[in-house]
Design a protein around this nucleic acid. Structure first.
Ligand code: SF4
Ligand code: SF4
Lengths: 137, 137
DNA sequence: AATTAATACTACCTTGAAGTAGTAATTAAG
DNA sequence: CTTAATTACTACTTCAAGGTAGTATTAATT
């Protein structure tokens, strides 16, 4: 029960970029070194983040990345969805077919509250609410 | 963000077995068919559940499995731990090294409540609290 | 004792996530 | 214009989870 490496990386990348919004461009080499994410894997993730419209890339010398979308308009949920790692409404915690909200697997009652709380937390955590001094990166 | 297939299977197996405690032995073929879990994969999981002492196996003709431990003494947390799928105290949600409870990754504050609630739910959900009529299996 | 039905063990195959390598395309600087 | 520094693309490799196959072992039934 954990987030995928890719999701973890993406969240760390975007929150770190948000922390440095003064710097107008951040390049892959810096991100890779600062966040200790393998360079080639990071650039693959960056391309996904560009394609989904969170950031834009500036190619060529002196290039890099900057936000395209408002950081108040990017939630953890959005990031997880980009990498298919969100908690889906229709996914049963025990993997028994699709959840129609009337079904009951053995863990239903116990899981439902946590599920809703988690989804709410992911949805309400936009990048701008996460920036802060002294965060581990 | 989901439980592993193996964990899901194990929870379904044990809750189903608990539902049928009248039947003193349940064999792998029945479990495989009823729960729609691949037979060979199921027997691998069963062997793990035996090794960790939740159930005992009776080999040979008319063999099968039955509980060894009290079902009130087996929690979802215990099952998840068996397959290394529990939410570890020291695991950072963003995968940044080890959590010492003084560190702060960007998601720390938002995650902590959910984490504690989930851990509590997994710990307090013993198999006997999960048995019930009409559950999806 | 032979047969049959069950679990246990060992080894392998498959799939998807994670990570790597090399090259092409782009663009600022000199 | 050339070079250097950057992102993008394509393809491959590695690793762990999930799943499969075959055989050995066990024990009740006949
Ligand atoms: S029973 Fe509960 S966990 Fe299972 S599918 Fe329905 S809502 Fe989801
Ligand atoms: S900062 Fe929060 S999530 Fe990260 S390791 Fe510490 S407690 Fe865990």
């Amino acid at each position: 029960m954990k987030l995928s490496n890719t999701s973890q990386y993406a969240i760390r990348i975007l929150t770190y970029m948000a922390d440095k919004q003064d710097t107008q461009r951040i390049n892959a080499k810096d991100l890779s070194q600062t966040l200790d994410i393998p360079y080639k894997f990071l650039t693959k993730i960056m391309t996904d983040l560009v394609k989904v419209g969170f950031i834009v890339s500036i190619r060529g010398r002196e290039g890099g990345y900057r936000f395209e979308k408002e950081i108040s308009d990017i939630s953890i949920e959005d990031i997880l969805k980009t990498f298919n790692d969100e908690i889906k409404d229709e996914a049963c915690i025990l993997g028994i077919g699709y959840c129609n909200n009337t079904c009951k697997c053995a863990l239903h009652d116990q899981w439902l509250d946590s599920k809703i709380a988690l989804q709410k937390m992911f949805k309400e955590s936009s990048i701008d609410t996460l920036v802060g001094e002294g965060n581990k990166v």
